[in-house]
Design a protein around this nucleic acid. Structure first.
Lengths: 82, 82
DNA sequence: TGGCTTTATGCGCCATAGCGTATATGTGGC
DNA sequence: GCCACATATACGCTATGGCGCATAAAGCCA
């Protein structure tokens, strides 16, 4: 599932989509005018990453966000503990 | 729709949900341990807002994010111009 | 195992978010 | 018009993201 409630989950999802598109962090960095190190930080779930960085990467991966009410999601809460 | 591709769209969505829940920025600030001014900035679409701030507010409003491939969305692109 | 690619870290620098505190500006309701 | 309540701004401060540049540490595959 691609539901995120934390920067960590968001980072993991972005990494999955990036790999699905056969791109490296360096590729994404080039597309977004960011550094490879910055992409690394985002995917690692650094809590301080800026929204602009997130939306830039989403654009590079051709993704978008949907905001929705939380569903009961035991799986996702368990995932939080990992 | 609640699709966001930019901090601005995200802020607008959050504001709508907050009002739907009859909460003030001060209420959300209290719940999240952030300042009312910070909530104001987030809803205004300040690009530098931190991911942690976003996820904290999402939690306070009982919302979550879904990441999905971009759909062709003329409406959303028009919205960008507003 | 060696060698190449990919990802994670380090360091010094600058810009800025978020802080506390406070005030100004909206915005409704009466 | 007045007055609460809500939201937007301001100022000085500290913490930290992202930068360039560089290197270390994994991963991967022949």
């Amino acid at each position: 599932m691609d539901i995120a409630r934390s920067p960590q989950q968001l980072g993991a999802i972005l990494r999955r989509y990036r790999k699905k598109g056969s791109m490296t962090q360096t590729d994404v960095a080039a597309k977004t005018q960011l550094r490879q190190a910055t992409i690394s930080a985002l995917e690692s779930g650094e809590v301080g990453t800026r929204l602009k960085t997130l939306t830039d990467v989403l654009a590079a991966l051709d993704l978008e966000l949907v905001v929705q009410p939380r569903r009961k999601s035991l799986p996702s809460e368990i995932e939080d503990l990992i």
